[in-house]
Amino acid sequence: QWKVGDKCSAIWSEDGCIYPATIASIDFKRETCVVVYTGYGNREEQNLSDLLSPICE
């Protein structure tokens, strides 16, 4: 189960590419979260089910 502060990978809606991110907040009722893309600072809402394991850098 994901928690705030977890590192993950998420698909950015603008280009469909996968980027490393950190979970900033979680809404368990809606099963969504807000991620912050590492190195970019962009925030975006994602479905918890769409999150991927962190990418090894």
Rank of each mutant, 00 (worst) to 15 (best):
Q1F: 11
Q1G: 13
Q1A: 10
Q1R: 14
W2F: 05
W2P: 12
W2A: 06
K3R: 08
K3S: 11
V4W: 06
V4M: 00
V4K: 00
G5N: 07
G5R: 00
G5W: 09
G5H: 05
D6G: 00
D6N: 00
K7M: 11
C8P: 00
C8R: 00
C8H: 00
S9W: 15
S9H: 13
S9C: 15
A10V: 13
A10D: 06
I11D: 05
I11K: 09
I11T: 07
W12G: 00
S13C: 06
E14L: 14
E14G: 15
E14I: 15
D15K: 09
D15M: 09
G16C: 09
C17E: 13
C17K: 15
C17H: 15
C17S: 06
I18Q: 03
Y19A: 01
Y19K: 01
Y19I: 04
P20D: 12
P20C: 15
P20K: 04
A21V: 11
A21H: 08
A21N: 01
A21D: 02
T22M: 07
T22E: 10
T22Q: 08
T22G: 02
I23P: 05
I23W: 01
I23V: 07
A24C: 09
A24S: 07
A24T: 11
S25W: 08
S25L: 10
I26L: 03
I26Q: 00
D27W: 12
D27N: 05
F28A: 11
F28N: 09
K29Y: 12
R30V: 10
R30I: 11
R30P: 06
T32Y: 05
T32N: 03
T32D: 04
T32Q: 05
C33S: 00
C33L: 07
C33T: 04
V34Y: 03
V34A: 01
V35Y: 02
V35W: 04
V35K: 00
V36W: 05
V36C: 01
V36I: 14
Y37V: 05
T38S: 09
T38M: 11
G39S: 09
Y40A: 07
Y40S: 15
Y40C: 13
Y40L: 14
N42P: 05
N42H: 15
N42S: 12
N42L: 14
R43N: 03
R43F: 13
E44C: 04
E44W: 06
E44M: 06
E45R: 07
E45S: 04
E45T: 13
E45D: 01
Q46G: 05
Q46K: 15
L48A: 02
L48I: 01
L48R: 02
S49R: 13
S49T: 07
S49W: 07
S49Q: 10
D50C: 05
D50T: 02
D50V: 07
D50W: 08
L51G: 03
L51K: 02
L52D: 03
L52H: 02
L52T: 02
P54D: 06
I55T: 09
I55P: 10
C56P: 15
C56A: 15
C56Y: 15
E57V: 13
